[in-house]
Design a binder for these strands. Structure first.
Lengths: 150, 150
DNA sequence: AGCAGCCGCTTGGTATACCTAGCACCACGA
DNA sequence: TCGTGGTGCTAGGTATACCAAGCGGCTGCT
């Protein structure tokens, strides 16, 4: 069922884990999930249960919704993302530009930041593409908006 | 893990199902989940996966968030990080601002990027300060995010 | 009395989420 | 050169989510 969906979720998790500078074992220690299993999740071999997903989200300090939505378990995407989608497209250049212009960063730090940033954008585009291929049919009453944080 | 949580979730589902005037088999037919399994879920014997949960939610026309939150798989308040970001909003450095305004990053990615950026800046300031105080041996190792595991 | 058709539930099995033990590789210090 | 300790991954087993088949208990109809 939506195999590549899980795969891209795994990749996303791996990205986030590396960003948090954690090894598989460290993450396993925090999430109480064995490190081989985490490895398999990240490679899309197994589909983790929601409980595992949540503990991963907690450990990586990312919202569980994000993960659920990525696999199609939640059809309502968090409001921030929707809003972000609606915003102007070419502000991507702005981030790169402002990073390069920043006075306090060293050259290495700049390129590190840029690398991270680009990997994010690439991952998101991938995820968005796959999400667009199999859109969940919303039930007529299902569009309940839980909360608007801003 | 939180057994009674699942139990009460089952009771809730049963209530909702009866409210929708459906039999187990009818619900099973819609959700593509076998009726005995549904029965066991409603009695709290088994913990359904998120996928099953979602299809039940869809069939009963209730939001999936509701069910997830009921079992503790969603914190019911995902806005934490966003608000944290907002709280720390000091005199908006250009990089920070452009990151926040970026159209393609998710909220988590933004806060992750910001975390990295701030750690860089903090490290640089620290390094500069120490270099000014004791110009002998600079600790060459501030915030080295560029580990390379692969 | 029958038997039809619904109901929820039990039983026994299969698929798979998840585990422990251990392997191969790489960097670093003695 | 050899550990020692870190990384991610493979192999094989256990636990459990999930299924198909079938049972006993209604209710209603003839």
């Amino acid at each position: 069922m939506a195999d590549d969906r899980w795969k891209s979720l795994g990749e996303f998790i791996r990205t986030q884990r590396r960003l948090a500078d954690m090894s598989l074992r460290q993450l396993a220690n925090v999430t109480k999930v064995s490190n081989p299993y985490l490895s398999q999740i990240e490679r899309g071999i197994y589909k983790p249960s929601a409980e595992v997903l949540k503990s991963i989200a907690d450990a990586l300090k990312i919202s569980a919704e994000n993960l659920y939505a990525r696999v199609g378990l939640l059809d309502a995407r968090p409001a921030e993302e929707v809003e972000a989608d609606r915003a102007v497209r070419d502000q991507a250049a702005d981030v790169e530009r402002s990073i390069r212009l920043d006075a306090e960063l060293s050259a290495e730090q700049k390129s590190a930041l840029l690398r991270v940033y680009r990997s994010f954008v690439a991952a998101d585009r991938e995820a968005a593409k796959q999400a667009a291929e199999a859109p969940a049919k919303p039930s007529k009453q299902g569009a309940k908006k839980t909360k608007r944080p801003t």
